[in-house]
Structure formats: structure tokens, C-alpha cells
């Protein structure tokens, strides 16, 4: 479903972390950890196609991505937001399903209210309801627990477990552990300098290319 081979994300000519290789299969919940600035967000953005500077390779199916910015249009209600979002997947709006999803994440009473009028936690719950509606099997989630209360975290863990059991896969960057029983850990470590202390320059050196 998602394969990373010696993947290293780069920013400003700097390698963010040591090469990462992992094979994420259907049913996997992968918790992506690492210190602040280790490159968790950049890795997820790379996998979603929003960051183009990396070395190594990855192969991925279509994914559902949720970054720090949730991607909810503040002027629109949750139902309207679902409609355009699912339009990308070529699916029609289905009010009953939308309401069910909102019920599940506990914000049914906000169904007809513009998202900008909700609290940060409520917006997160609306975004979570969107996961339930999407047909994408791979979810890439960046710090989804932010601003959520304990009950919402429980709901999230349950949704993730169900998604994995149904044959999906989740990669989730987080600082606080999610109460999910079966998980794989992927920790991003800092880059190791080469023995002679030379710094990566951001250029692909011709000599190196020839050696390949």
C-alpha cells in the first residue's frame, strides 16, 4: 500500500532525517514519532505529494491527507465541506451518510453551521468525520490529536482501528500515543554526518552520479 525505500526528505539543501525504509501493508497502523523538527510533517507532506525534495523512493496508493491546516472551508457548513471534498473522489453527496459520520464524531448539532464558527476541537471532529466518508484506503494524518478532548481521542482510536481492520492503513504523526493496541512504530532519527565531516550540499555531485 505504501513502500518507502531509503527515503530522505530535504529542505534547504539539508537532509532532515536518516534514510527511512518501511513497507506499510493493509491493516497497519504506523505511529510516526520523532523530536520537534525531525521532519515528521515533511515526510507526510512528501508522501502526499506536497513536498518535492527527497532522495530515495516511495510508492503509494491514493491517500487521504490531513495536515496542520484541516482543509475545511470556514464559510461552509460541514455538509457542504464534505460535498466538495468527496467530489474529488468522484462521489456524490449523501446527506444521510454525512449526518451519520457527524453523529459518530459528536458534532451532529453543528451540521448546518459554518465551520469558522466552531471551536478548534469541533473543527477537528468535523475533519475526522470526513475520514469516515472517504473511500481512500491510506490515511496520512499529521498530529490529529491536537485540540481534541479525551472522549474525541477515544473515538479517533476506534475509527482508526476499524479502518485498519477493514483493510486500510494509517500513518499518523503524533507526540502523544494513541490508545491503539496493535501499532508499528516509525521513529525519525537525525541525519548522520559522513565520517570525513563533509556537509551535504544539496547538489548532486557528478562523481556520485557516476558511481551509481
Amino acid at each position: 500500500m505504501l513502500t518507502l525505500e531509503e527515503l530522505v526528505c530535504e529542505r534547504d539543501g539539508r537532509e532532515l532525517f536518516a534514510p527511512v525504509s518501511i513497507d506499510v501493508r493493509a491493516g497497519d497502523y504506523v505511529e510516526l514519532t520523532g523530536a520537534n523538527g525531525a521532519g515528521k510533517s515533511t515526510l507526510l507532506r512528501t508522501l502526499a505529494g506536497l513536498h518535492s525534495r527527497y532522495s530515495g523512493a516511495f510508492d503509494s496508493v491514493d491517500c487521504l491527507f490531513q495536515g496542520h491546516r484541516l482543509g475545511l472551508d470556514g464559510l461552509l457548513t460541514p455538509l457542504e465541506n464534505f460535498a466538495w471534498f468527496l467530489g474529488f473522489e468522484g462521489r456524490d453527496a449523501d446527506r444521510e451518510r454525512f449526518l451519520d459520520a457527524l453523529q459518530r464524531t459528536g458534532v451532529l448539532n453543528k451540521a448546518y453551521q459554518p465551520c469558522s464558527e466552531m471551536s478548534a476541537g469541533q473543527q477537528r471532529r468535523v475533519a475526522m468525520a470526513r475520514w469516515l466518508l472517504s473511500s481512500r484506503s491510506l490515511w496520512l494524518l499529521d498530529e490529529p490529536l491536537t485540540a481534541l478532548d479525551a472522549s474525541a481521542q477515544q473515538v479517533m482510536a476506534k475509527i482508526i482501528v476499524e479502518h485498519c481492520q477493514a483493510g486500510g492503513a494509517v500513518v499518523c504523526a503524533t507526540h502523544s500515543e494513541l490508545p491503539v493496541a496493535q501499532k508499528r512504530l516509525l521513529k525519525l532519527e537525525a541525519t548522520q554526518r559522513t565520517p570525513d565531516g563533509s556537509v551535504h550540499s544539496g547538489y548532486r555531485d557528478f562523481a556520485k552520479v557516476q558511481d551509481e
Partner: peptide, 17 residues
């Protein structure tokens, strides 16, 4: 600007066919 700040833009580039 609005779409950029809300994240709608990145969702569009990730998901739009």
C-alpha cells in the same frame, strides 16, 4: 489566500484528479 490559509488548497492539490 483564503484557500491557502484554511488548507483547502493543499487538499485540492492532494486529492483533485
Amino acid at each position: 489566500r483564503r484557500d491557502f490559509d484554511s488548507g483547502v488548497l493543499e487538499q485540492t492539490l492532494v486529492s483533485a484528479q
